[in-house]
């Protein structure tokens, strides 16, 4: 069996789970500047307070998993992306502690609101920048990163950073649509609408720019007949965009978030198609990066057994906290 490929898929699932789940946590913070009322912000935060830690754990699995099964990729990517990784970690600190600190003080509440917003912004931007830097390719000599200190910083990577910020805002807004009511919900519909349109524009731009700028990616997408199957992706993009906008317009509560996830899934698939079979683009393939089979198997046994259990109790937590967060419920009596 091809354990490396199985693990590449599992790590992708983990990263996607992270993006899908922590995406709305981060997105809520990114929307704070447009939601100024303190009671609204309390409700927004309480929609995610019971689940954010679990959501973030997918990031730990992504990182820890990479170390376990693709140690070479981990040890090249981390130094290559040193600054954005550190920035992301610091950003996650500021936003993570805000969940608790904010309710511990009246005087400094504003400070922790700011910490929540700015921390999330830095984390989201850094994630987008890393994504862009991977698409650009990473230079390697002798099992070590050999590019420059600022290779990750280009107009393209910055654009990807902004795109991820917008994407998370869209996820946050559609999540709020599902979890709130009244004025807060109305405002979330509006935020969802604008961020969805901006996000689709960003996706379209990246999809057109990359094949233009990069012959490898152009070949991947435009080789007839091998690439024909891939053309389903842009068609799906149009369908999902229309579905998302329509469900926002018709004020369906649960659907926009799911459509939004569809957009992310598509972008994710596009990303995978553009870098496959590399894990460190253009330098190290997933097979070259893989740890010995013995390590892959050892962890796989656990993952196969434990992931379903994790899904079950995580699902249970979401189920316990299902439904609307009601501002009148007196959650801080």
């Amino acid at each position: 069996m091809d354990y490396a490929l199985i693990w590449a898929i599992l790590i992708s699932v983990s990263v996607f789970a992270y993006v899908a789940l922590d995406g709305f946590d981060l997105g809520i913070a990114l929307l704070f500047p447009w939601f100024k009322k303190e009671e609204d912000r309390d409700v927004m935060m309480n929609t995610v307070a019971p689940v954010w830690d679990g959501n973030e754990t997918w990031l730990v699995l992504g990182g820890g998993g990479l170390l376990a099964v693709f140690p070479l990729a981990y040890s090249v990517l981390m130094p290559a992306l040193y600054m954005p990784v550190i920035a992301m970690l610091l950003g996650l600190i500021f936003r993570g502690v805000a969940f608790e600190y904010r309710f511990k003080t009246k005087r400094a509440k504003g400070i922790w609101d700011l910490s929540f917003i700015v921390g999330s912004l830095i984390a989201a931007l850094s994630q987008g920048i890393m994504l862009g830097a991977m698409l650009q390719g990473i230079q390697v000599t002798d099992r070590a990163y050999s590019g420059g200190w600022f290779d990750w910083l280009t107009p393209f990577t910055l654009f990807c950073g902004v795109a991820v910020v917008i994407g998370y805002m869209m996820l946050g807004a559609t999540w709020l649509v599902m979890k709130t009511k009244g004025d807060l919900q109305r405002q979330s519909y509006r935020a969802g609408w604008y961020s969805a349109i901006l996000l689709v524009a960003c996706i379209a731009f990246v999809s057109l720019y990359l094949p233009y700028a990069d012959p490898f990616i152009a070949e991947r997408w435009f080789t007839y007949p091998a690439s024909v199957g891939l053309w389903a992706l842009p068609i799906l993009l149009v369908i999902i965009t229309l579905g998302l906008l329509r469900s926002l317009h018709k004020k369906q509560e649960g659907r926009p978030y799911l459509w939004g996830l569809g957009l992310f899934l598509l972008s994710f698939a596009g990303f995978a198609v553009s870098i496959f079979p590399y894990l460190v683009p253009r330098s190290i393939t997933l097979w070259q990066a893989a740890a010995p089979d013995n390590s892959l198997k050892f962890l796989l046994v656990g993952a196969v057994f434990l992931l379903p259990i994790i899904f079950a109790y995580t699902g249970y937590t979401y189920w316990v906290f299902r439904g609307k967060v009601d501002p009148e419920s007196g959650y801080h009596d």
């Binding site: 830690d53 820890g64 170390l67 962890l299 937590t317």
Partner: peptide, 28 residues
């Protein structure tokens, strides 16, 4: 990380799968 990853990585992977998710899941 490159050299010791195949040994310590899976152990930390198990830490995430058996401990961190459990804590985070029930913390809420």
């Amino acid at each position: 990380s490159d050299k010791a990853g195949p040994v310590i990585g899976p152990l930390m992977g198990y830490e995430v799968l058996t401990a961190f998710f459990l804590e985070a899941g029930f913390l809420g």
